[in-house]
């Protein structure tokens, strides 16, 4: 940590006080993204990362957690898919950003799948308990939309309570949302989230290209429009800086 001058605050200009109210931000861990969002995700906040299957939601989320872990930030990954841990490890382990030694300590993995037939309050209590236990600075729920398919009627209230408590725990939380055919993004989640990032696939000739677009980010003067992204083993999820 470099030194901060000790001169008294009274001498500071008025704009210093304005700057003072600005949000604390945390690096997303996605190369190219932080420049588009004034330096990083607002802390604390809830970010919806929406996209259809294969657009990179899980990769994006893992990369976000690993970037935190590199700075001693605790990560907590909730999966709603009832996948055994070793599957996720297996699929993700060939990304160069993945360090296996972080799993089980700086990145904790929790299966929510088996909880989802329980009453909503119980699901929330379980999530809150896991968070209080691990004290994460970064949280992922992947994908949150599965919960909506199961609990139906209480979903809106659940999302509202969930996002409120996620922020009160003082963390940046990424909720991933599966986009169904004909739907642009999961609307219920987008109401509850502070930010919405849309991932998409577009057919171009025989190939499909991947894109990222920031639909909203509270308190942030963000870039608009869809930016191409690439996902590779070496570099993981990267936003390319040419706009289409």
């Amino acid at each position: 940590m470099d030194e901060v001058s000790e001169k008294t605050w009274k001498n500071e200009e008025e704009n210093e006080e304005l700057r003072e109210n600005e949000m604390v931000r945390v690096a997303s861990g996605i190369p190219g993204l932080d420049d588009m969002i004034e330096g990083g995700f607002p802390f604390p906040s809830v970010v919806l990362v929406a996209g259809s299957a294969g657009t990179g939601k899980t990769t994006f989320s893992l990369q976000f957690l690993f970037a935190g872990a590199e700075q001693d930030e605790q990560g907590l990954f909730f999966t709603t898919l009832s996948e055994p841990t070793h599957w996720m490890l297996q699929y993700s382990s060939n990304f160069s950003f993945v360090k296996k030694e972080y799993f089980g300590n700086l990145i904790q993995y929790v299966d929510l799948g088996s909880m989802l037939n329980r009453p909503v309050d119980e699901i929330l209590r379980y999530i809150n308990e896991k968070i209080a236990e691990t004290m994460p600075q970064r949280i992922v729920i992947d994908p949150v939309t599965i919960i909506g398919n199961i609990i139906k009627d209480d979903y809106r209230k659940f999302l509202f309570d969930l996002t409120n408590s996620l922020k009160s725990w003082q963390a940046v939380s990424l909720l991933t949302g599966e986009v169904r055919p004909g739907e642009m993004y999961p609307v219920e989640v987008s109401y509850a989230a502070d930010s919405v990032i849309l991932l998409s696939l577009k057919a171009e000739g025989n190939a499909r290209r991947k894109y990222l677009e920031i639909l909203k980010m509270r308190g942030t003067d963000h870039r608009t429009g869809a930016y191409p992204v690439s996902i590779t083993r070496e570099d993981g999820f990267v936003v390319l800086r040419t706009r289409f």
Binding site: M1, V4, K7, T8, W9, E12, E16, E20, V24
Partner: peptide, 14 residues
């Protein structure tokens, strides 16, 4: 956090 809240840090220090 002295980096995030410099003026506040100055006040607290004083």
């Amino acid at each position: 956090d002295p980096h995030a809240h410099r003026a506040l840090y100055g006040l607290l220090k004083s």
